[in-house]
Design a protein around this nucleic acid. Sequence first.
RNA 1: GCAGGGAUGGCGGAGCUUGGUCAAACGCGCAAGGCUUAGGACCUUGUGCCUUAGGGCUACGGGAGUUCAAAUCUCCCUCCCUGCACCA
Length: 970
Amino acid sequence: MIDYNSIESKWQKVWDNEKVYEFDPDDREGILVTAALPYVNMPQHIGHLRTYSTADMNARFLRMRGYNVLYPMAFHKTGTPILAIAKRVRNNDKELFEELADYGIEESDIRKMADPMFIANFFTDIMEKGMRRAGYSIDWRRKFDTIQPRFSKLVEWQFLKLKEKGLIVQGEHPVGWCTNENNVVGQHDTRHDVQPRIEENIAIKFKDADSNAYFLCATYRPETIYAVTNLFINKDAEYVVAKIGEEEYYLAKDAALMLSNQKKLEVERSIAADELLKKKALDPITGNEIPVLPGFFVKSDFGTGVVMSVPSHAPFDYAAIERLKRDGYPVGEIRYRKVIDIEPSKDGKTLGRSFAEEEGSGTGDGHSGNGQKSIDDSIPALAYLSLIDGNIDAEDDVLDRATKAIYKEEAHWGIMAEGPYKGLREQEAREKIKKEMSAKGQAMSIYLLTNEEPVYCRCGTKVIVKVVSDQWFIDYGNEKWKAEVMKHLGSMKIYPQKLDETFRGVVDWIDLRAAERAQGLGTPFPFNPSHIIESLSDSTIYMTFYTFDHILAANNVQPESLKPSFFDYLFEYNKDISAVSKDTGISEEVIKKCKDSIDYWYTSTRRHSAPDLVPNHLTMYIFNHVALFPEKFWPKSIIVNGFVNSEGQKMSKSMGNIVPLISGAEKYGVDPLRFLEVTSADLDTDINFNISALEGVYERNEYLYKTAGEVNAMESGELTHIDYWLYSKLNRKIKDATAYMKNMNIRNAYTRMFYDSVSELQWYKRRGGKNGIVVKDFMEKIVKMLAPIMPHFAEELWHMMGNNTLIVREKWPEEDEGMISDKEEAIEEIIKGTIEDIKKSVELSSKMDLNAGKKVSKVKIIVAEQWKATAYALLSKTKDIGGTIGSSALSGIDKERLSKFVSQFAKNVRTLVETAEMDETALEKSLEEAKGFINGETMLSIEVEEEGKSKSARASRAMPYKPAIEIIWS
RNA sequence: GCAGGGAUGGCGGAGCUUGGUCAAACGCGCAAGGCUUAGGACCUUGUGCCUUAGGGCUACGGGAGUUCAAAUCUCCCUCCCUGCACCA
C-alpha cells in the first residue's frame, strides 16, 4: 500500500528547500493564475479543494508548457460573516460550537472567537496550512488580506475612480431590517439563515365615504378589485389615523410602524376598531359604498392591517363572510362575482389540476382516476375549498392551502372575465392594473417580505422592510459600460464555453448594486466614511495586488504613501513617474519595479472559480476591470468548475457529511483527493466524492507504482507489433491529452493519461509485451503528465525510475507523430475481434447437430488477399462500384472474383464509411506473432494462413478488416 | 415570474460542438468460472431481446421532421434542477 502521507511530506520539504514555487519575472512569457480568494470564517473541507486544485493543475500544466506561471493566494476578511461568528460566540451559540468542534477546533480557541480579529487570523492560519498540505504551487511571498491598510488604499482608489467616471450613484433601496438592532438584515443575520425576500407590492386606497381619509389595503392581487365586496379589519387590533404625504389613512398601528420605515409617515391619532366598523368605504372602481367588517384572519402586523375583501376568489374572505352571516352579523348585501376564469387544459382539466398529482388519492372520493371532480366553480374560493375537502369552518392552514392553490392556478391559467382587461391573462392584467391605479393616485407601492414564514433576526425580532435613502450604488446598469463589457466578453476565453451565454445574460440583467453597508469589516466608504465598502465590491480588482504588494512591503512603503497618483501610474492614468514619486514619497525605483511587475504578470491572466460566483463576483470582476484599467489588463480567461458532492449529496453541515481538509488529506492522501476532485467529472459538472471512486485511483496508482519499480530491471529487445502498438497509443495519447488540457477538457485528458494508460499497460503485458525501453518511455511520459494533478506521487515515481531532476520542473512531453500508427492499432483491434469471433462461433456452432459429440481440433484464421483491401478502401471512398471494378489499381485481379467481392456491398454502398487500406501482410505477420496469445485466450489450436494459399472453403469470406475463420471439428 | 442547465442501460455517468466506427466509454452493481479451508480479497468472462458459425431485432424523456444514415441536427410537448442582489 502506498503511503501517500510520507511521500507528500517528503517532496513538500524538497520543494520548499528548492524554493520551486517562487516566481519572478524573467524572459519567458508570464501568466497569472488566480482562484477566488477564500473567506476566512470557517475551516476548509475537502470540497473546497476543487477550485484551488484545478487552478493549481492549470498553473503546473502551463509551467510544463514553458510559461512562467504565478499562482498566488490571499484571504478575504471584509464583510459581516466574521462579525456574525464573533457575535454567535459571545451568545454561546451551541450549534456553532458543535460545528467548529467537528472541525477539531479546541473549545478554548472557540471562546477566543468573541474577538473578530482572532477569527480572521485563526482561520487564515488554518487555511494556509491546508493549502500547503494540499501541495499547491502557491508563491506564499505574495499573501495578503483584504483588510490590511495598503489594500484599503487600492480599494479607495477604485471607488474614487468609479465616482469620477460617473459609475457610482445614490438612491433609495428596500432592505431587510431589524428594528431592534437598527441594522440591515441579510441572510447571515437571520435565524436559520433565511434570505429575506422583498417584493414590491401595491396598497389600494379606499376612500372613507364620510371623510377625506382613506382605508389603505395592501394586496397581492389587485386584479380582483372588480369583485371587492367589503373591507376587513381586525376588531381586536389597534388602529391609527396616519398621514402619508398629504393624505390621511386608516391602518393598523403595527402596520403604520412598519410602513414608517418605507414612507414618510406620521401617526396623528389612534382610532378604535369599532369606529372603523361603522364606516363605509368607497370602491375606487365603481364608487359604490361597501361595508367595513371584522375579519377573523386579519393581522395587524402584516401589510396594512386592512384587507380588501374578495370572497369569490379568496377562501379566507369567503369563510369570514359566511361565518359572519351565520353568526347573524349584519353584513348587508354581499354579491359574489367571479372575475377570473381558468382556461381549461387540452385534456379538459380546469380547477385543481395543479395538485391533482401531488395529492394523489387524497380525497378518496373515487374520482381520483383523472383527478377531476365535477365541481361548481361559480364561486372559485368555495370550489377550491371543497376540492381539498374544506369548508368555511376549516382551520387556517386548510384555508391557506386553498388560497395557495387558487392563487397559483389563476396566476397560471387565469383569464380575466370581467372589467376593462377582460380576456387578458391574469398576470398581464395585474401589472396593467398596478400601473394604472398607481398613475391615477388610487394606489401606492409598498414593499412586503414574500417569505412563506415570518423572518426573524438572530436577536429574535421580526424582520421588516426598510427603504433606505441616500444608498450608494455601483451602476452596473449603465448602458455604455454594459456595451463595453459585452464587447470584451467576445474576446475572452470562458471555460466551459457554454457559460459564455450565461455571462451575457448576467451582463444584460445586472443593474444597480449596493456598494456600501452600515456594518462589517472593510474599507470605509470614501463618500460616507461611517459605512464600509460592500465586501463583494471591494474584491473585484484585488488580483492586481498580487503583482506589487510584496514589493511595497519589502521596501517598507507605508499605506499613507499610496496616494491615488501611485495607482494612477500603475494603471496608466498618468505617465510622469517623477511627479508620482514626488507626490507619494515612494522612490522612482520602487514605483518602476511595481509597474514592471504588473506589466509582466497582468497581461495574461486566468481566473478560476466555482459557478456560484458567475452572477456576482465574476461579472463584477469583468465590469470593474473594463471600467478602470487599460485594455491590456482586462480579463483574458475565466475557468469555472462545478461543486463537490459527497456520496451523491451536497456537502453541508446539516447532512453531517463534511470531511475537513486536513483530516481528509491524512486519511485519503492529498494526491488521490486532488485527482478525484479535478478529473472525475467534466469541468462544469458537480463531482461526486465517494470512497469507491477513490479506490479506483488507489488501485491504478498501485499498478503504476509497481511498474515504475520494475522498469529498470526489464530487458529490451527488437520491437514487435505490440511494442509499436504501445508506442502508438502513447503518442496518440500525448497528442490528444495535450489538446484536451489546453481546452480545460480535464476529464477527457486524464481519462487518456491515467485510466487508459493503465489498461493499455495491462493489455501490453497480457499480450506478452516485455520490452524495457518501451515501458520506461511510456511510464516516464505518463508520469510527467500526471504531475500537474498528482505532483507528489509523480515526483516519487519519477525518482523511482532513476531520475534525479525534479519532475515539477520538467517539460510536458511532446508526441512523436511518426509513432502514431493507425495500422498497428487497427491490427490489434482485429486480433481482439478475431478472438471474440472465434469464441462466439465455437459456442454457436457447437449446438449444430452435425457437430454433436465432436470437439474442435483446430481453428484456421485466414487473412484476406491484399487486393480486397485495395478494393474495399477504394469503394468506401468513391462509393462507385463500376469504377472500383474497373480501377487500374486492380487491373491484375480476376474480374469475376473482384466483381463478386465488390458487388456484395452494392445494396449499402452509400453507407460505407471511408476506411484506409489494411496492410494484409502486416496483419498476417502480427496474427502469426499472436498465435500463442490467441491460443491462450481460446484454449484452441490456431493456424494462420493467407487466403490465396488456403484450401479452406471459407477462405473467400475473408474481409480486409475481418479474417475468415474456419473451425475444424473432429 | 425571469434567466440558465438538463432528461441515456439496474445505478452513477460518457457520447452529443465536427450525424455513420454506438447495444452505447469508464465505474458500480449483478452472474458464472478460476484461485481457495473460506472469502466482502484477487483474476477472467458475461450482463437489452433473439440466434444450430462471427448474425438479426428493439433501444438513448414523448411526438413530428431533415438525411442513404440521428443519442447526436430542426420544431413542438412533458418533466426535473440551479440562480435571482446588498449576501459571501
